[in-house]
Amino acid sequence: MSQKMLLNSKEINIILRRLACQLVENHPNFENTVIIGIQPRGVFLADRILQLLEEEYGIKNIESGQLDITFYRDDFRRSTKPLEANKTKIDFIVEDKQVIFIDDVLYTGRSIRSALTAIQSFGRPKEIELLTLIDRRFSRHLPIQPDYNGRQ
C-alpha cells in the first residue's frame, strides 16, 4: 500500500485551531454541550480540541466522554476479522444536551450511524453535531455529513 502524508503537524495545528474556533462560534457557552470522542482515534482528537478550547478560550470543565461503537456496528459476523471492543466512558446522561461527536476520518458514514444508535443508550440528546479531521466525501454509503470539517 502506498503511503502519502496528507497533513503535517503544522497543518494539523492550524486546522484544529480553526475547528475549535468554529465550535466556540456556534456554542458561545458550553454549559449544555458535551463532547464525545468516538473510539479509538476520535478520542485523541477530542482531547486535543478540549485542550485547545481551554488554552485559547479559557473554556474549562466541558463534559466529555468516550464512546465505543463496536457492539452497534452493522458488520458483526460479516467482516473477516473479529471486532475488538474499546472502552466506553460516559458518566452522564445526554438527555436534552447538545452533543458533538468527534472522529478522525469520515469515510462511509457507517461508524457515525452506529454512534448515533449507541448514544441513545445514554438518553435523548437535543441535538447532535459531527466534527471530523478528514472527510472522504466521495465514498459515503449513508446520508451523513460533518458539521465541522478539517480537510476534504
Binding site: A85, N86, K87, K89, Q120, S121, F122
Partner: peptide, 22 residues
C-alpha cells in the same frame, strides 16, 4: 476483557446493545 465492556453496558441507563439482532 470482553466482559469488562459488557459490565459497563449493563450499568447504563439503557442496558442493551443490538449486536446479536440476527
Amino acid at each position: 476483557k470482553t466482559a469488562d465492556h459488557f459490565k459497563e453496558v449493563i450499568n447504563r441507563p439503557i442496558k442493551k446493545v443490538p449486536s446479536l439482532r440476527d
